[in-house]
């Protein structure tokens, strides 16, 4: 399970945790996160996420 940082605002997406509040189950890999999902803290679209593996 990997973690990713939104390079725009520093929000961390943790594959192990997912984002249940956004309907993304724990364990969801980054590739499987819907393209319509946006960073909860800064609104950047997933397509604009330049993820960096922590």
């Amino acid at each position: 399970m990997k973690t990713y940082i939104c390079i725009v605002c520093g929000f961390v997406y943790d594959e192990a945790a997912g984002r249940p509040e956004d309907g993304i189950a724990a364990g969801t890999q980054w590739a499987d996160v819907p393209e319509t999902w946006a960073c909860p803290d800064c609104g950047v679209a997933k397509a604009d996420f330049e993820v960096v593996v922590v």
Binding site: V8, C9, D41, C42, G43, V44
Partner: peptide
């Protein structure tokens, strides 16, 4: 002075 307003 926050991030989200900038993106919008």
């Amino acid at each position: 002075p926050y991030v989200m307003p900038i993106m919008n």
